[in-house]
Design a protein around this nucleic acid. Sequence first.
DNA 1: GTCAGTATTGGACCAGTGGTCCAATCATCG
DNA 2: CGATGATTGGACCACTGGTCCAATACTGAC
Lengths: 216, 216
Amino acid sequence: MPRPRASRLDPERRQTLLAVAAEEFAEHGFDGASYNRILERAGFSKGVAYYYFEGKDDLYAAVLALTLDTLAQRFGAWQRPADADGFWRTLRERYFALTTHIVNDERSARLLRSMSQARTHPKLQEAWLRFEGPLVAWFQRVLADGRALGAVRGDVPESLLLTSLMGIGQATDGWLLEQWAHSGVPALQRGAEQVFSLFEDLLVPRPVGPPPAKRR
Amino acid sequence: MPRPRASRLDPERRQTLLAVAAEEFAEHGFDGASYNRILERAGFSKGVAYYYFEGKDDLYAAVLALTLDTLAQRFGAWQRPADADGFWRTLRERYFALTTHIVNDERSARLLRSMSQARTHPKLQEAWLRFEGPLVAWFQRVLADGRALGAVRGDVPESLLLTSLMGIGQATDGWLLEQWAHSGVPALQRGAEQVFSLFEDLLVPRPVGPPPAKRR
DNA sequence: GTCAGTATTGGACCAGTGGTCCAATCATCG
DNA sequence: CGATGATTGGACCACTGGTCCAATACTGAC
């Protein structure tokens, strides 16, 4: 957590510092980023830096908080749709908005991707808990709503579904970027379509009874 | 790549070094591990270390190679099953063997998990490429066989399927360990069962025609 | 205006990091 | 024996994140 006095820091200098830090962290990840370099580039001395922030991890957390706030504002809160169809429609809409956003703001995207390191990093445990909570809660609410509407399967623990969903989301995120880099925007849209269909296949309730006979 | 002379290093000392390094890397990951500490514990001076290995990354690669070799030996090569049923049976068998192995050899498991950092780490690119190749090839062969046997869907790019599968596998791996830590072996088996069913749901060919009407 | 007390600042300094380098030692062979 | 190349220890380097403190700027009370 940033020191309370951090709010008293000149907004402009604060803004500079966070921008420089965001760039550095996005470029090199948490471990790879050099705190000294950040401070030098932002024109901060060690004394000032440690006066306002507790350390490298604290600054990282501040940068992450800013990025996530922006993201949260952009996507707003989740509201329970009326029925299963509505559920999948809004979920799909959100997912496409997210992929578009990630492609358009690569710095934030790389920053967000660096979060996966944060989860296991001993010095970032505290920061991780602060962000994991809301994120997981959001997904949990979505899944719970989906179940209540019959749009999401109930035959498997919710925690497993959540884990799988986030794992697959993270993995395909990289895949989508590759598609985009190799074959441009149309491929990206096609790819997003296919990724989302995988989400559906994973979450949709299993048909009851014996598995359908192979057809063709 | 380890220097060629590395093979001339006294096997016993080499073994000591690799064991100490494995412990350190498993405990702290690549960045967190202290090369100096490893060398000190293993009784190596800087001079010797850099005489036989190119550096920290090289040693890490050596440790990883050893671990993966053991794993590969244990699981042997993949052979194309006769039919779709056989495909799922052998895949399932392999998966359960793997989860058992991971639970029984936590050091290796943590080491393998640290590989996910390696993928994005600039200093480990070379090492990653050396291990990514065979691993991905293995999965590709499995998926291709599955397709040929009609056991795996063909309506989605193979690369996407591969990415998703590995992503979900990695994510659920952590989930399984939690299950095990919280509720012991029976929960682990139940969990593995459910995880594997997710794999199936993801990979199995979609039924053709309109989605089945909701039944109950 | 003066002075006390606090907020702010710069930067010297610290232990630790991975990595380089080289003089000294050892082994081997002519 | 001497010479040549392999092997070794450890001093040293630039860098890391982090601590500390003396000097300065600012504030309000008198």
